[in-house]
C-alpha cells in the first residue's frame, strides 16, 4: 500500500530513484518507530534529523546506496512526508489504535506537526502550537505542498527539507545548491501559500 503511493510521485519516476525511495521509506519508518516508541522520550530526537540517520544506515547497507547526500536529502524529506501522510490516511480510514506502530507513528505525527506549525505560525506560544498540531491535517498539508510544487518545485523542496528533513535555512541552501537569500524568500512565499491553503475552507 505504501510503495505505490511513493512511486506515483514525480520524484520517483526514475526506477533507481524509485527503488531508493522504497528502501528509504522502509528505513525512515523503522527509525521513526524506534524514535517515537513509547519507551523513548521525545527530547532525544530534537537535534537528530531522521533523514540523516536514514542516510547513514542506507549508506552502510549494500543494496540501495544513495547517490549523493544532497539529492538523498531531497528525496528522503519528501519520503518522510509520504510516511506521515500515509499514516494519517490509514488512521482516518481505520480509526484503530493501540498497536506499537500506530502509537509510535502518532507520536511522529505529533512531533512533526508541532514543528510544522511552529514554522508556519512562529508567533504562537509553544502550548498553542502543540494544541493546534493535534488538529493539523497532514493530508491537507500534503495536498498544499503538492499544489505548491506545481507552482515552484524548488519552493516545495524548501518546505519538505524544512518540515520533514528538519533542516535549517542554511542547510537547505547547501542541499539545494542555492543562496540563503533565495531560500529565505522561497520560504516566506511558501509559508504564506501553505497558510492560505490550510486555512481555506475545504473544497467540496
Amino acid at each position: 500500500m505504501t510503495s505505490s503511493q511513493t512511486a506515483s510521485t514525480p520524484l520517483a519516476a526514475d526506477s533507481s530513484l524509485a527503488a531508493l525511495a522504497a528502501s528509504t521509506y522502509q528505513e525512515l519508518r523503522r527509525i521513526a518507530q524506534i524514535h517515537f516508541s513509547a519507551e523513548r522520550s521525545d527530547h532525544t530526537l530534537q537535534r537528530t534529523a531522521l533523514i540523516n540517520e536514514a542516510y547513514l544506515r542506507l549508506a552502510q547497507g549494500e543494496s540501495q546506496r544513495p547517490t549523493d547526500h544532497p539529492s538523498f536529502l531531497r528525496l528522503a524529506s519528501r519520503v518522510m512526508r509520504n510516511i506521515l501522510v500515509d499514516h494519517a490516511r490509514t488512521k482516518a480510514a481505520t480509526k484503530r489504535g493501540g498497536d506499537v506502530e500506530i502509537v509510535s507513528l502518532d507520536r511522529t505525527i505529533a512531533h512533526y506537526g508541532t514543528q510544522c506549525l511552529a514554522d508556519l505560525i512562529p508567533g504562537e506560544s509553544s502550548e498553542t502550537t502543540r494544541m493546534l498540531a493535534l488538529e493539523l491535517d497532514f493530508i491537507a498539508l500534503d495536498q498544499a505542498i503538492e499544489k505548491l510544487a506545481r507552482l515552484s518545485v524548488r519552493q516545495s523542496q524548501v518546505v519538505d527539507l524544512k518540515f520533514f528533513g528538519q533542516q535549517s535555512i542554511e542547510e537547505i541552501a547547501t542541499t539545494l545548491n542555492t543562496s540563503i537569500a533565495t531560500v529565505k524568500r522561497d520560504w516566506a512565499v511558501a509559508r504564506l501559500f501553505l497558510l492560505r491553503e490550510l486555512r481555506a475552507e475545504p473544497n467540496p
Binding site: 515552484s152 524568500r185 516566506a188 504564506l192
Partner: peptide, 12 residues
C-alpha cells in the same frame, strides 16, 4: 511558474 516567481518577488 513565471507568474509565481513574480508573485514571490512582490511578496518579498
Amino acid at each position: 511558474s513565471q507568474r509565481w516567481e513574480r508573485i514571490g518577488e512582490i511578496i518579498a
